[in-house]
């Protein structure tokens, strides 16, 4: 056995990564708090080769490959009420779990602008809905007449005590920072008030519409629904898209 071992990176060329043209607002310093935010977070396994093909070389995949669907509902926030959804592939920079975002949606122009400027989300306009009903928590994304995503958790049980939290993998968006393309992380903290874990189910999943038809959910893992105070802090770290993960990693955003 000799030579340099093969390492498992994303296989997508940096030049083919869709970068949000909106520049990151590096002047933002305040933390925005959304009280009683509702968050639906559902994870499925997807084929490893599809994940590798979608991830840039700056990121390691998770093993197994995982696809995350996140819905946020703010009933009363400084941004006004909004619902936001994003989908991404579990990945690693260094060893920290993150989700490389494939698509994001909101009907609220204010929310789209805020999340683009603060964290690089390339939000498309769509009707996003997150609702808790008597037997499920359901999230949907509709564009025009097309149901892109319809996901729910059922048979939910409360998580209490030390386990009453969700370890969200932060979203990672391709955007422009100080004139350069970079991956920027959602910087958030959560004060949990209520946490449920349920069995995920997909009623609709338009892979092509969501950005990559090969990312086909295969195996449900778990889903959660939380009510929490969501603290949205200024972005702090960026990752160079083109530098292979082993040589790259996160660095501070220059302000």
């Amino acid at each position: 056995m000799s030579g340099t071992p093969e390492l498992l990176y994303g296989q997508r060329a940096a030049a083919s990564v869709a970068v949000n043209p909106a520049a990151l607002d590096t002047a933002a310093t305040e933390t925005v708090v959304i009280e009683n935010a509702e968050i639906l977070y559902v994870l499925y396994e997807v084929p490893m080769q599809a994940a590798l093909a979608a991830l840039p070389v700056a990121l390691h995949p998770s093993i197994p490959a995982i696809y995350g669907m996140t819905f946020v509902r703010a009933r009363d926030a400084a941004l006004g009420p909004f619902e936001l959804a994003w989908c991404g592939i579990a990945c690693r920079t260094g060893i920290k779990p993150r989700h490389f975002i494939q698509a994001a949606y909101s009907a609220s122009a204010t929310a789209r602008e805020f999340f683009a400027a603060r964290y690089g989300f390339a939000c498309q306009e769509a009707a996003v809905s997150l609702r808790e009903t008597f037997d499920r928590v359901r999230g949907t994304v509709v564009t025009g007449d097309a149901m892109l995503l319809d996901v729910a958790i059922t048979d939910a049980i409360p998580l209490v005590g030390a386990g009453a939290l969700i370890k969200y993998s932060p979203a990672l968006n391709a955007t422009r920072v100080n004139g350069q393309a970079a991956l920027v992380q959602l910087e958030a903290a959560y004060d949990f008030k209520r946490v449920l874990r349920g069995r995920p189910g997909l009623a609709a999943f338009d892979g092509g519409g969501l950005g990559d038809a090969a990312l086909r959910p295969t195996q449900p893992i778990a889903g959660s629904f939380a009510i929490c105070d969501l603290h949205l802090m200024p972005a702090r770290f960026q990752v160079d898209i083109a530098t292979p993960a082993e040589a790259g990693g996160a660095s501070r955003i220059q302000r």
């Binding site: 994870l43 995982i66 005590g161 030390a162 370890k167 946490v195 778990a222």
Partner: peptide, 21 residues
């Protein structure tokens, strides 16, 4: 760390009281 980092700890994927640490 590179190798371990790519694994998926239970706490990352499946919220549960017995894997919260």
């Amino acid at each position: 760390g590179y190798m371990a980092g790519q694994t998926v700890e239970v706490s990352e994927a499946y919220p549960a009281n017995n894997y919260s640490a």
